[in-house]
Simulated assay, not measured.
Amino acid sequence: MAYNSPVPMDVMGTLVKFNSQTAGREKLLRLIQYGTRMLWALMEKYSHEKEVVFRLQNLEYTFSTARKIFRFGRSLDVFYSALTAINIPDLTLRLTITLSRINSALYLLADHILWIGHAGIVDVNKDKWSALSNKFWLYSLVMNLIRDAYEIKSLLQIQVSRNYVENKEMLLLSQPRNPFSSLIQWMIYHRPVTVELIKNGCDFWIPLSNLKIVKISPVTVGLLGFISSLAGILQIINTSYKLTTS
């Protein structure tokens, strides 16, 4: 008698593959961490369950610490990947990707030192290293967003050229279209740059908030981190959603 699994094999295989990757587990922890932050912030605002809020805050801290352990040593990997990015032919991509990875490596290095300090191994200035960590993260995200803007510009130029070659510009002008609908269709068609832009756009505000450059509520920070984590998980599950340098 055959046994029918309630979970399709392709879905189960994807989950197993995702769970076997350190990056996948770290993104899942990040999703839970920011989801927990959003939850305790909402409860703190609309509920009087102080004990539950306290426990959720401790849970968020636990997931944050677990992520630091998962990432420990990754700064070296990211720095090495920055060296390989020097060979990218396109100048704009070469600069943005290389600088983004260098800053990301420095962000992770500062994060490692912070973890060592929290673990009590050595005495470190936590405020100083936390600020440095967020600054390097912010610089990395700025480079990522510049790269996203460049990718979007290149895609739009290709689309305009294609319409011109196929002599469709008059047809497009004669048929009124909903700009919002056109934008949605474009975003769906160009999924990699859309997912990358959502991820970087959401993450961008978190170090700004941590550095107190802008004032954002913990609920908003939690929501932004949750959305960017979902985008990161999607890129790991389906690599076709990742931007490539080719």
Results as ranks from 00 to 15, higher is better:
242 K>M: 14
187 M>W: 09
40 W>F: 15
14 T>S: 15
44 E>A: 11
1 M>K: 10
126 K>C: 04
58 N>K: 13
184 I>F: 15
202 C>W: 09
8 P>G: 08
116 I>M: 07
183 L>F: 15
174 S>F: 01
5 S>T: 09
161 S>F: 02
50 K>M: 07
15 L>N: 10
1 M>I: 09
158 I>N: 14
190 H>D: 05
102 I>M: 06
236 I>R: 00
127 D>S: 08
143 M>N: 14
102 I>D: 04
34 Y>H: 07
73 G>E: 03
89 P>Y: 13
241 Y>V: 13
136 F>S: 06
110 A>N: 06
228 S>W: 07
70 F>W: 10
127 D>M: 07
76 L>D: 10
113 I>M: 08
3 Y>M: 09
129 W>K: 05
150 Y>G: 01
101 R>M: 06
188 I>E: 14
124 V>M: 10
97 I>C: 10
7 V>H: 05
189 Y>P: 00
168 K>S: 01
230 L>I: 15
157 Q>P: 05
194 T>M: 08
228 S>F: 03
89 P>G: 10
226 F>T: 01
164 Y>V: 13
177 R>V: 11
60 E>T: 05
56 L>F: 06
194 T>A: 02
186 W>E: 08
85 A>H: 03
220 T>W: 08
129 W>G: 00
134 N>Y: 02
197 L>R: 04
33 Q>V: 04
23 A>D: 15
38 M>E: 08
148 D>G: 09
64 S>C: 09
36 T>H: 04
146 I>N: 11
229 S>M: 00
2 A>H: 12
180 F>C: 09
192 P>C: 09
81 S>A: 10
171 L>H: 05
143 M>W: 02
6 P>I: 10
33 Q>R: 14
188 I>F: 13
102 I>R: 02
52 V>G: 01
131 A>H: 04
45 K>C: 05
170 M>K: 15
240 S>T: 15
119 A>R: 11
244 T>I: 08
83 L>K: 03
70 F>L: 14
26 E>G: 03
88 I>C: 07
27 K>M: 07
150 Y>E: 09
207 P>I: 00
189 Y>L: 14
55 R>T: 06
224 L>C: 08
62 T>S: 04
2 A>V: 12
62 T>E: 08
76 L>R: 07
196 E>R: 15
141 L>H: 01
21 Q>Y: 07
237 I>G: 02
179 P>A: 10
243 L>P: 01
142 V>P: 02
183 L>D: 09
218 P>C: 03
5 S>V: 06
5 S>E: 14
20 S>N: 11
228 S>L: 05
124 V>F: 10
138 L>G: 00
57 Q>D: 09
223 L>A: 14
81 S>Y: 04
47 S>L: 07
11 V>R: 12
2 A>R: 06
38 M>V: 00
150 Y>N: 12
18 F>I: 03
68 K>W: 03
41 A>Y: 03
114 L>F: 06
163 N>Q: 11
102 I>C: 04
34 Y>I: 05
120 G>E: 01
237 I>N: 02
232 G>I: 03
169 E>Y: 04
35 G>R: 06
155 L>Y: 00
59 L>S: 12
206 I>M: 03
17 K>W: 12
207 P>R: 03
26 E>I: 02
119 A>T: 06
165 V>W: 05
234 L>Q: 08
100 S>L: 05
209 S>A: 15
132 L>M: 14
101 R>E: 13
27 K>L: 11
43 M>T: 05
105 A>T: 02
